[in-house]
């Protein structure tokens, strides 16, 4: 069974971020990067499925040279091989463009299963995997919490809102995005680290894939640091009035109720 895990590299969680000169992305020079947290859970699920079904896990990562570190990490954690789609512009690409490039890069691989994490820690669209599936004409399911491989199909349990779950079967090949936090993330082992160097990493140039870059469906024009503001409201009146006012604010302004 051939399994792909779409794995993204994002800035580390406690990175001190600064905006770039054009104000449409962060200054990447002094930032450290790591594997996107959600994708760890996708990788964990991919490794589990592979273990139980004699599968092979391929890491698919798009981005500049720096993403090779994350690819090595994933290989040290147990993935079998990798495809690096070399693309200097990945950070500003929109999910559709990303998906077109990834789909073009992996279509000939004929993966039985493509997994991704839930969403990325930097842009958080949660769309790329699904879009890849659409482009490749594969069924897809998001927020998957359980999987079971059956003959030519996969049974999955999806987490819906309000404590509801959905059980659904998809014919293979299929694409799933995996819910975070349900298993331990896989750790690299020292043996895995030593072996990672010997595992094959295929290099694909994004520019050579013939994907038409039409500017994309989406463009990041401006990002900014949230403005800090502090506003204090004092409620007056008797207890009932105060409670009523408080509930109104929580419901309609803070929208937490």
């Amino acid at each position: 069974m051939k399994i792909a895990i779409l794995l993204k590299q994002v800035p580390v969680k406690d990175a001190m971020l600064e905006l770039n000169d054009s104000g449409n992305w962060i200054e990447e020079d002094d930032v450290q990067f790591e594997i996107n947290d959600s994708d760890h859970y996708g990788l964990a699920e991919a490794l589990n499925i592979a273990k139980e079904n004699e599968g092979e896990v391929t890491v698919v990562t798009m981005g500049p040279d720096r993403v090779k570190d994350s690819i090595k990490q994933a290989l040290a954690k147990g993935a079998h091989r990798a495809i690096h789609i070399d693309d200097e512009e990945v950070s500003s690409s929109d999910p559709l463009t990303c998906a077109k490039i990834i789909a073009a890069a992996i279509k000939d691989e004929n993966f039985d299963l493509i997994l991704s994490g839930l969403q990325s820690d930097d842009l958080g669209f949660g769309q790329t995997g699904v879009l890849v599936a659409e482009i490749l004409g594969m069924p897809h399911a998001t927020l998957v919490v359980e999987t079971e491989i059956l003959d030519g199909k996969i049974k999955v349990k999806r987490e819906l809102e309000g404590g509801w779950f959905q059980n659904v079967e998809l014919p293979l090949p299929a694409m799933l995005s995996i819910q975070s936090g349900l298993t331990d993330i896989p750790y690299a082992t020292i043996k895995g680290i030593m072996m990672a160097k010997k595992k094959p990493v295929a290099e694909v140039e994004a520019d050579d894939l013939g994907v038409e870059l039409d500017g994309g469906a989406f463009k990041l024009e401006k990002i900014y640091t949230p403005v800090k503001s502090k506003e204090t409201t004092v409620f007056e009146g008797d207890a009932d009035t105060i409670v009523a006012q408080l509930i109104d604010k929580l419901k309609n302004e803070a929208k937490v109720l």
Binding site: K72, Q73, I185, A188, T189, M194, A196
Partner: peptide
């Protein structure tokens, strides 16, 4: 250095959890 970095990261990820 690269191997060391990865060993450190493996321990950190484990230890954090």
């Amino acid at each position: 250095q690269e191997n060391l970095q990865m060993i450190l990261q493996a321990w950190q990820e484990f230890a954090r959890d």
